[in-house]
Design a protein around this nucleic acid. Sequence first.
RNA 1: GUUUCCUUAGUUAAAUGGAUAUAACAGCCCCCUCCUAAGGGGCAGUUGAGGGUUCGAUUCCCCCAGGAAACGCCA
Length: 590
Amino acid sequence: MKKILDLISDEMMQAFEQAGYDRALGRVTLSNRPDLCEYQCNGAMAGAKQYKKAPIMIANDVAAKLADSAVFAKAEAVAPGFLNLTLKREFVGDYIKKMRADRKYGLEEAKNPAKIVLDYGGPNVAKPLHVGHLRSAIIGESVKRIARYMGHTVIGDTHLGDWGQPMGLIMNELKIRKPELVYFDENYHGEYPADPPFTISELEEIYPTASKRSKEDEAYKADAMACTFKLQSGVAGYRALWKHIIAVSVTDLKKIYEKLNVDFDLWNGESAVHDMIPGMVEAMKEGGYAYLSEGALVVDVKEETDTKEIPPCMILKSDGAALYNTTDLATIMMRMETEQPDRIVYVVDKRQELYFEQVFRCARKTKLVQEDTELKFLGFGTMNGKDGKPFKTREGGVMRLENLIQQINDEMLRKIKESRETSDEEAAATAQVVGLAALKYGDLSNQASKDYIFDIDRFTSSEGDTGPYILYTIVRIKSILAKFTENGGNVQAVLSEIKAPVNDSEKQLMMELAKYNASVEAACDEYAPHKICAYIYDLANAFNHFYHETKILAEDDADRKAGWIALLALTRDVLETSIDLLGFSAPERM
RNA sequence: GUUUCCUUAGUUAAAUGGAUAUAACAGCCCCCUCCUAAGGGGCAGUUGAGGGUUCGAUUCCCCCAGGAAACGCCA
């Protein structure tokens, strides 16, 4: 279905053409002055020079052609040359009626669906998720859902950190604590136990302890490196132990991601590409791309158009070991082999932008990807505390994601109990649903690339531009529809009864609904979930305004009432589809 | 030091080069015999400084001030 703005523009362009002007001038935009008109066209001013004519004269010529337009109730030329437009009620009602009948509410899927690998999440094995992982998860999940809804094929890969030094540290510490474990007996050749020799909480305690000690104790560090080496070279006991670490961690990670309503198609870790590294490095050497510099193996990625110095991309450290770059490049290689994506998108902290620029250039130069494979860095800003500095616990430490979620839920629960009589059970369930919306909306409503301030009071408030406000609006609609059903009405039966709007707030609501397809499309093209947030906030506002001015269930005219019920159902459907794209949902009551 | 990004109301955030810069929160004032007042309506308050391009600049260019980040063996 065409976007409403395109339909309006078509009508305007035709008028420009009929009046003897370039039709390209007839592009219409949303009004900047809602007090004066609904839509506007500034083409007359743009064309003034070309036609050596006062803008107002051009605008008058065009307006004359629109006198009996089927689209515009009013099209007037205003000084210095604006064309102020008001839509016909029938035109708006008709558009919404068609939108209702459309499977995706008027949204057209992408003409060239792409296969996209989306790299987000980035958790590390044996380390609890902390607030730093939050944005990647939330933004990535939403980008994934939006792109899929637009018809693209998206593969979400968490790119687990499961291979490097941390693994060696854990194993070494474990060896010290429990040397009797069979995994450390290199003469053992039997089956290894199926149950892990540690719990997740032990694991989470072991890593920081080991990490700290390795910084103070050289011998300890050397032992840990030896463990890393044994793992990477395939010593059976170490591999078996490592598998336990992964299994225990991933189970725990999945639990928390589930709480966030985030899931991945692939749990490939850095380990998955380990075996590809030697071949890849060799190919880079043979291709004449990689050379030794200061002892390390690097690939130059400078380009003539650079305004800044881009350091070469390091492939191997001077001790010959692989590093982050190496695994990322190998991961690109693997993805190209297994998935052949058109696009690989990384949802990563924006501070890594230069690093990824190097990796992308290196991948391109060494032909790991095809020329038309798009590599996209989607950097996000930091979540800050109220002091404007990166978010910390009161003690100054890193806050675990679990605790953050719990804080939001507790606050939500407190608010629910304060405002309404409910059973403890229902209140707790509602608090979870609304809490997640508060958290996600609070994050996603900001431009991903910007830093933002995490403010629990603001996010959980139902006043203003917040998740709870959106949910409350949906719940209100559901409540009316439920009452309608209770009184013997049938919502399904009246869905197609949408009519031309009879009052202003109804028309406003319809015009907001009509922007749905354009909003989702823009959000997808620009990887910008915040555009969907802005859209549903406007829509919720338009609905609440309409709600206050209109007594829906008390309406005597059955026809009119049916139309309103249909409008409500559509509003609910659009809102619920939208929040699903953002990665949260609404309760039945709150 | 070099480079990049940012600077909008008291605060947090919006605005393909268009009119009187848009909202929210906080502040002040109204509205529940009425479908959830977790709502609605109203008042007041803003583009860091200076140049330039343009009929028109928050937006593009230059410069200054303030902030953040990145800058080869961490990820």
